[in-house]
Amino acid sequence: MAIIEVSQLQKYYGEIKAVDGISFSVNEGELFGFLGVNGAGKTTTINILSTLLSKTGGSVTVAGHELGRERDDALIRRDIGIVYQQNCLDDILTVEENLLLRGYLFEQSRSKNRQKLTEVCEILSLGDLLGRRYGKLSGGQKRRCEIAAALMHTPKLLFLDEPTTGLDPATRLSVQNAVGKLREEMGMTVFLTTHYMEEAANADNIVIIDEGKVAAAGTPHELKERYTNDTLRLYSHEVERLIPMLDGCRITKTAADCTEIEIKGTLSALPILNSVQHLITGYEVINGNMDSVFLNVTGKTLSI
């Protein structure tokens, strides 16, 4: 069942079409990847979905509520949590004060708020940090607190707008683990925008937008199938004899003892390997990755 349905969504700023008729849907419980270069329209779309920004056209339904009607917008706000790229909690307050305030913003009672605080702290392992000032925490701890703040009112849907940008690999991994744990333990739907393709590869479904339009959509596997090829890397000391045997294959790289050819799917490697096995000392099949998908779809690389 779809928790978000977007149809022909538009957001224009005068002549500029920030979002230009995009359509997609997000199913309940899934990790949805929303990719695009800077300025592609990702944050504008999230701001519209989270009721911060009005849309120019199109229709959007979030958690069964139609966006754009005041009463429905209020209900949408109760069902969503957002973690922005930049930290939004107060440095000068303790983690506990920050988190409790977020609960109070959703008009939760004191006892409910305390209960939620215990729950989110357990899931995100924040128990030891509650009494510490938010500003004194490490980057990874801060990110986990930001996620906890977005969960204080038990949203059905969590938006993560580039939550790991600018973080070191270890911290990024700790945030990814926290998101994974959330999905595992709470069955939460996560709407993720990211610059890191390895994060997007874990998504159930992905939409790539470019210049405000949907450039590609599908599961990571489908996108790889559609937009990338696998690579067969052959190791050989007889490259001069090997190359003529690869007639009809697209050779992408040749080195002293290694030749790479493009293949359509892993199984396509088998007949080639059979024909050249007497000339090679080893081989590797390298699957197409999301970086290649992104590059092939948009013709752009992601800048972080």
Binding site: S50, T51, L52, R77, I82, Y84, C88, D90, L105, F106
Partner: peptide, 13 residues
């Protein structure tokens, strides 16, 4: 300036 207002406004406040 620090986008905290936007963060507050995604709640029912």
């Amino acid at each position: 300036a620090q986008h905290k207002t936007a963060s507050f406004l995604t709640s029912p406040v």
